[in-house]
Design a protein around this nucleic acid. Structure first.
Lengths: 209, 209
DNA sequence: GTCTATAACCGGATAGAC
DNA sequence: GTCTATCCGGTTATAGAC
């Protein structure tokens, strides 16, 4: 309506922050209201309950992530020297824009809230077709000798593991290595380089070219 | 006293489980008491408060983890083909025996409880000396041409990222890939192999022997 | 040391005025 | 749509008997 976003959006924004910082159980409706510049009753005017509010936000974020994974898995299998840097960049860039998401997912998954596991199951089934295609493409690439003989699923896990690490472990890392995190942009660039370097020279055949 | 461990230990054990499953805010003293085969009042007889109970358990687990890291960092720098498999095996084995620890740490770090960040800061400073030594050893190994020219800190992060992944993401992975997790021992062995393979052929010089 | 009963509080949710 | 005041259930914590 006016220059400030409407209250409903401010509540969603504030709730996303508080849930990310404190988790579902730790989040306080009062704090969400305060950060949104509203009062508790307004939250209940727009959302049925704390759980409904959480679910709305979580589902939205989770859908974004799965969309990214789908787009990642649709990359045509070509030279890993081209594909891997693209994938790492895409993923890190997304995570950088949704900083709090990995920790939020890890924290909330299997924490009593049944909505969460449902979301995972429902979306990952759609996802498994993509994964099957990827396996076949990688198998072809292995026969083709354009990548080493690696397990496709393990390789995907490796890539995800390397990418999410700094976001998942950020609170520990910033405490332990304050200098590295003083310039986040620089750190991210170095991280990207290191991941690509490790992945590539773990994939490219030994006696190529 | 008798064959069953004493109540204090049973409480600690039960609390560790419940905190790991539900997080600090989600944990209920009643559930801890039930699992320990005691009642709430007994918990308060042995521990001052919920927070004190949590802190005791968290500090103990965290100390164990740092002790492992210290022992890992003391490995003499030799051929990566020997060292890397050792490190991965040590770390995965530890994590397997303290299954819930990574998720607990990630979940609770920076979640309002100031004790936690203090623990990190205090212990990681002791830790940084070890890390400096490692950097120097790796620099020597690089000059020596026994490993590729990689960033030592990034390499440590890579190793940790790959090792913790299945434990951190376990709830998602079991939902998404039930077959893989039906035989945990087998899955762990495959994971170990894949990590070592990736790390090694990302470290060993291209045109070696 | 162990237990039952209860106090004290906190936080999600709602009633109802405007 | 927005706000204040309040309810009510659940949870931490304690009192006090044994």
């Amino acid at each position: 309506m006016n220059e400030r976003e409407n209250i409903r959006d401010r509540i969603k924004q504030a709730a996303a922050e508080v849930f990310a910082e404190r988790g579902f159980d730790g989040a306080r409706m009062q704090e969400i209201a305060d950060r949104a510049g509203a009062n508790k009753a307004m939250i209940y005017y727009y959302f049925d309950s704390k759980e409904a509010l959480f679910t709305a936000i979580f589902a939205e974020n989770f859908a974004n992530l799965l969309q990214l994974f789908n787009s990642i898995l649709q990359v045509d299998a070509v030279d890993p020297k081209v594909v891997i840097p693209q994938l790492v960049h895409l993923h890190l860039d997304f995570l950088n824009r949704h900083n709090e998401l990995p920790r939020m997912i890890i924290r909330e998954i299997q924490s009593g809230n049944p909505v969460v596991e449902k979301l995972v199951r429902a979306n990952f089934s759609r996802f498994s077709g993509q994964l099957q295609a990827l396996r076949e493409e990688m198998a072809a690439a292995i026969r083709n000798n354009s990548i080493r003989d690696v397990d496709p699923l393990q390789t995907v896990w490796n890539l995800v593991a390397l990418n999410i690490f700094i976001f998942v472990a950020r609170p520990i890392l910033t405490a332990a290595f304050p200098e590295e995190f003083s310039d986040v942009g620089r750190m991210l660039a170095e991280r990207e380089k290191a991941i690509v370097d490790l992945m590539l020279y773990g994939l490219v055949p030994r006696q190529e070219a």
